[in-house]
Amino acid sequence: MGLLSIIRKIKRKEKEMRILMVGLDNSGKTTIVLKINGEDTSVISPTLGFNIKTITYQKYTLNIWDVGGQRTIRSYWRNYFEQTDGLVWVVDSSDLRRLDDCRMELHNLLKEERLSGASLLVLANKQDIKGALTPEEIAKVLNLENMDKTRHWKIIGCSAYTGEGLLEGFDWLVQDIASRIYVLD
């Protein structure tokens, strides 16, 4: 417990949060990060490797790790698990064919012990596309209700294209992490 309390103290001082963005390829992870940060989203190449963004959000500093989702590089996700406070799982709500893949990868991820304490935000992205599933439908397909009861999670529909829903999602995530890590002074 000694180490944990030291880590907590250090984090409290710096008010830092480490957030890991993962999901299948083509789900819009990089676009979401850039959109939140107010950057140009018109030219984004599929992520080969990862990007890190440090964003000041409310009174916190968010270190967002945006990791590429192509099948070949999914096995490297585990290199980023350490000390993750928040997990953002991004879903392409219009890609009906790969929802099974999506669910499998998510549940594999949630088995990971190093992520067991992380708050989970599921972003049902691409709500702007006609024919996209609603967040409620995505929650059902991903079997979120049957997740480990101790997990803090929330699903929110969003569009990285219009920006809708992104702030709502990150507000929840940051508040949830803050209430766990930064016990009220």
């Binding site: 219009s94 009906l96 064919r97 929802l99 099974d100 669910r103 024919g131 599933l133 439908e137 059902k140 397909v141 079997n143 209700e145 049957n146």
Partner: peptide, 20 residues
């Protein structure tokens, strides 16, 4: 779990619903 959703195979319901 009191939720009525059948956790065994929720997916097929959606793969039937085709996009254009």
């Amino acid at each position: 779990n009191t939720a009525p959703a059948a956790p065994e195979q929720p997916a097929p319901r959606f793969s039937v619903q085709d996009s254009p």
